[in-house]
Design a protein around this nucleic acid. Structure first.
Lengths: 246, 246
DNA sequence: CGTCCTATTGAAATTCTTCAACACTCGTGG
DNA sequence: CCACGAGTGTTGAAGAATTTCAATAGGACG
């Protein structure tokens, strides 16, 4: 009885760092028991990274893995001559790092201020060995990233510049207000990317991005302040502009 | 002793269907014991599908899963107005089917004649429950598909039409002669896609694809017979043409 | 105040698409 | 046996979209 009680107390002892952490609820840590969290937290470090800071480069060893606590991370690829394509954006509480591969295939860079909770690969492996559910969550995140990548492929391959930009704004909006994205209300949020990054994400030049921002503004679909603050006046029209029906 | 012997005999009893199957070696079935294979094979069916035949549609329930025994499968997405983008090609012995999701997010269609070995979702789940290694293999395939999708994103977003076509030919070549792709020798193989599919894969029109085929032909990099038979005369030049250095 | 970074706008150049015509192959049926 | 049509692929000319080059403007910072 006393035994049980003590265990209870012990189990409720979630590490301080984890208590308010989003990754514990929706991220990969969600499947861990307090004991496992405590064990993992012995190997974790928190980092703050400024915009432009690089977390890992394509070709580099797997190194440390991280949960994103806040901010937005760009995943990008480079062509030998310097052309760049952003192949994914990661938001809190996404997991960041190459699983099951010797090296990273993309470069990860902070788009905004980013806070990470990172741990060495060995710690992740130990956790997965103990908690198959965590392995499953990693698989689920990979599947979600695959879906997102393929969704973006149709944007890159088949949409016009105007549709691409509308798609991007929709994507960011959906991360600020999940669920009720196709709703009626007025959204207001900050773009996590500067024009050059948006261009690299959409496969366009900054000039084309800028021109189509202007068109969306003039058509009244969005309102822009300080280049980054976006207000969506008419979500339905934006959604329509992101697909066929111009 | 007699017990062990009987087990040995039993274990070596790989189902007939599986003996020559590539999926048993390099695919998801590779981690299964003969016993597990026998169990799984009780639920499997083989299908042959002609070019253009649809395996499953985006939005359809997960239904059956398959190993590709031979042939090439297109994974594609549609925009409401009918524009199409091929988001992936799958070759034997790839696994085909939506894991861990209620419904498919892409449409799968045979590009060539395709032979499948399929089984219901429940059978797959039973196998994964018994063989964690199989779950791991599925995760690895998902990671590989994610890498391929992201590689293709830079092709779609940042390459010129000429580079895109060269990239496509390289991609197909690498599946006909894995490993020594950057070698010197002369390759000859058949394209699994018709021009319209290549256009949908590259985010171009069939006319643009055709024009750049002609340019590659006239430049001597490739030789084309019957529209589909490709001979790569100079792999290094093709590789160079697929990236920056024209 | 000058410089760097970011963003916008215009004009010219380029690439890709669209529209149109034509060629080839392969079955089918008269 | 040949004509016909469907499916596939090539080529040309005109048009549209995007890029490139160039100039300008505002904000942040030393």
């Amino acid at each position: 009885m006393a035994q049980v009680q003590r265990q209870d107390i012990h189990n409720s002892d979630v590490p301080l760092l984890c208590i308010a952490c989003e990754a514990r609820h929706k991220g990969v840590c969600g499947a861990l028991t307090p004991l496992q969290l405590t064990e993992l937290s012995r190997h974790t470090k928190r980092h703050a990274i400024a915009p432009g800071g690089e977390m890992f480069a394509a070709g580099a060893g797997a190194g440390r893995h991280s949960n994103i606590l806040s901010g937005v991370v760009k995943l990008s690829k480079l062509l030998p001559d310097g052309r760049q394509q952003i192949v994914g954006l990661q938001f809190a509480p996404d997991f960041l790092g190459r699983q099951n591969g010797p090296e990273n295939t993309v470069t990860a860079e902070a788009a905004t201020n980013v806070r990470l909770c990172s741990f060495p690969q060995s710690a992740l492996e130990a956790v997965v060995a103990q908690s198959p559910e965590t392995g499953h969550r990693l698989h689920l995140q990979t599947l979600r990233e695959l879906d997102e990548a393929r969704d973006w492929m149709i944007t890159l391959g088949r949409k016009t510049a105007a549709e691409k930009l509308a798609s991007f704004i929709c994507l960011v909006a959906s991360h600020h207000n999940p669920e009720k994205t196709p709703g009626k209300g007025v959204f207001r949020f900050e773009l996590p990317l500067k024009r050059a990054d948006i261009a690299d994400f959409l496969g366009l030049t900054i000039e084309t991005v800028s021109r189509h921002f202007t068109k969306l503004r003039k058509s009244g679909i969005i309102f822009v302040e300080n280049n980054r603050q976006i207000t969506i006046n008419d979500m339905d029209r934006l959604l329509a502009a992101s697909q066929g029906s111009t």
